[in-house]
């Protein structure tokens, strides 16, 4: 009788442990959302862009289905950005940000808190505490040409990032706000970016709505086929 009880206990422990492991091992691979970008460029022009974004971290393409001001598709890969209009490739340009360090990929991998810096050669140089902010300064050792990065966190969420040049002058500021938890993924629905060029600044506010994680439909858009060039 005792052996049976022991067996039951072992079985229960095994079932509980395996469920816990399953939850832990749950991976997030896809994110899609409606987005809008309100921008003031360096010339003072104000531009609104509205669309839907698809990203699958295994496919490594960010697909933007833009509906305003012009209907157009943008496919961004690690190396190139393709502009597609009416099913035709109209422009190809070099990518500016590797997929790994896009907010979509960092959120799916749960590494946005330190902007993925923990897995890089960047070293934590300084840590400061405010009443509700933790500010960390990151530097690349043995590279005098690279500027420092400063991150701010609140409640273990990244709230800001400042990029400095090697002279300590601020080049850009990013703010991450309105975090939403979707099926376990914390995503900043609002992002504000300031870029400082000479004595001017550009402002970009990106907002996301209707965020979905691991959506299994829309396979076509997640792996949008880039048509051959003109």
């Amino acid at each position: 009788m005792r052996i049976i009880q022991h067996f039951k206990f072992l079985l229960l422990t095994f079932v509980l442990a395996s469920s816990a492991l399953q939850i832990y091992a749950q991976t997030f691979s896809r994110i899609e959302a409606d987005f809008s970008i309100k921008e003031k460029d360096i010339a003072g022009n104000k531009i609104l862009t509205i669309g839907h974004v698809y990203f699958d971290k295994n496919i490594r393409k960010i697909v933007l289905d833009i509906s305003f001001p012009n209907k157009i598709i943008i496919v961004a890969s690690d190396s190139l950005v393709y502009i597609i209009k009416d099913d035709s490739l109209v422009n190809t340009s070099p990518a500016t940000v590797p997929i790994d360090f896009t907010v979509y990929n960092l959120c799916l991998n749960n590494t946005l808190e330190f902007y993925g810096l923990k897995e890089t050669p960047y070293k934590l140089e300084e840590l400061e505490k405010d009443s509700d902010l933790i500010i960390t300064t990151w530097d690349l050792p043995d590279d005098e040409t690279a500027g420092k990065l400063m991150l701010s966190q609140k409640d273990k969420k990244l709230t800001g990032m400042i990029n400095f040049d090697s002279e300590g002058i601020i080049l850009s500021k990013y703010f991450f706000e309105n975090y939403t938890n979707i099926d376990g993924v914390e995503f900043p629905a609002k992002m504000i970016q300031y870029m400082f060029v000479l004595d001017k600044k550009t402002i970009k506010v990106t907002t996301h709505r209707n965020i979905k994680i691991n959506e299994m439909g829309n396979n076509y858009f997640y792996d949008y086929p880039v048509p051959s060039g003109r």
Binding site: T96, V97, P98, D100, F101, G116, L117, T120, P121, Y122, L140, P141, D142, D143, T145, A146, G147, L149, N163, D165, L171, S172, M195, F196, V197
Partner: peptide
């Protein structure tokens, strides 16, 4: 310069050899 600096940071991140 600004984009280069941003990419410089990111390139350093992406590439394990600094510089």
């Amino acid at each position: 310069v600004v984009i280069s600096s941003l990419l410089g940071s990111i390139a350093a991140i992406a590439n394990p050899t600094p510089g």
